[in-house]
């Protein structure tokens, strides 16, 4: 290593704390991203993406961008990812992608393209002239003040346009989510009539274990004639049929001292 190389290395050195942060969180971010790519369940992908975003937020913090780091957590991870999760629930949380690829050659082509692109980027970046001026001076009045200075002076037009964009996006979402009412609004009276006409159980179902000794979720409720009501248990538990999961209720009625007379 030559002297100029040493100088160069010294000039661009970031400091050990940051290095540790990077080398700890960087691989975690990469692994989480790979998890986003490879998870079978969409919910897992969403949560791993949230993990990636959190790592990135810390990296922003490490790079003297506290405002952005917090905004990343609050807006991106907190709002956007949660929005993703809500929509996942709407769409069907247990809908899983089959792993069989329907398009011929898509996997290989995608792999080649991604590796190629990444390789090209990296090799292109290798020639870059590296400086490390640091943000000490820019953050002299504080990061938020510095950002505000720029946003409301040089980038004010972009700011205004972006705010218009946000309003438009909100309206667009409303328009898209709107469902035109084609038939009359169903009144409470109509609902009630429907419920009774159907012949089904009109009242809310008993919760599990209500008239039994236990009120665990796996103990069925008792009907007035003393038989257990399967209908009061969660379908999931019945479906699982784990032995011992359903505690049979006792048939006795619990009597207390101040009962009788």
């Amino acid at each position: 290593m030559t002297t100029s190389g040493q100088l160069l290395a010294a000039a661009t050195d970031t400091g050990t704390g940051e290095a540790v942060t990077f080398w700890l969180l960087g691989p975690i971010a990469v692994l989480a991203a790979l998890g986003v790519l490879f998870s079978k369940k969409a919910v897992h992908s969403a949560l791993l993406l949230a993990a990636t975003m959190l790592c990135l937020a810390v990296l922003y913090l490490a790079q003297d961008a506290p405002f952005l780091g917090v905004v990343q957590v609050v807006v991106y991870t907190g709002a956007v990812m949660m929005l993703f999760l809500f929509v996942l629930m709407l769409v069907g949380v247990d809908s899983a992608d089959s792993l069989v690829e329907t398009l011929r050659g898509q996997r290989i082509a995608a792999l080649v393209a991604a590796v190629g692109f990444g390789g090209l980027l990296v090799s292109g970046l290798g020639d870059a002239v590296v400086t490390n001026k640091g943000l000490k001076q820019a953050n002299a009045d504080g990061n938020v003040v510095g950002l505000a200075d720029l946003i409301f002076s040089r980038y004010v037009f972009a700011f205004e346009v972006t705010s218009a964009l946000l309003i438009t996006a909100a309206m667009g979402a409303m328009v898209l989510a709107h469902r035109e009412r084609h038939e009359e609004k169903v009144t409470q009276r109509d609902l009630s009539i429907q419920r009774f006409r159907g012949g089904q159980h009109p009242a809310p179902l008993p919760g599990p274990g209500v008239y039994a000794r236990h009120n665990a979720v796996d103990t069925p409720a008792l009907l007035p004639d003393g038989s257990p009501a399967e209908v009061s248990l969660s379908r999931v538990l019945i479906a699982l049929r784990v032995p011992g999961a359903i505690t049979p209720p006792t048939g006795e009625v619990v009597r207390t001292e101040d009962d009788g007379a």
Partner: peptide, 11 residues
């Protein structure tokens, strides 16, 4: 932004 020493990248 950090490399250049100004906040434009962050904006």
């Amino acid at each position: 932004a950090r490399m250049q020493g100004n906040l434009d990248g962050q904006v």
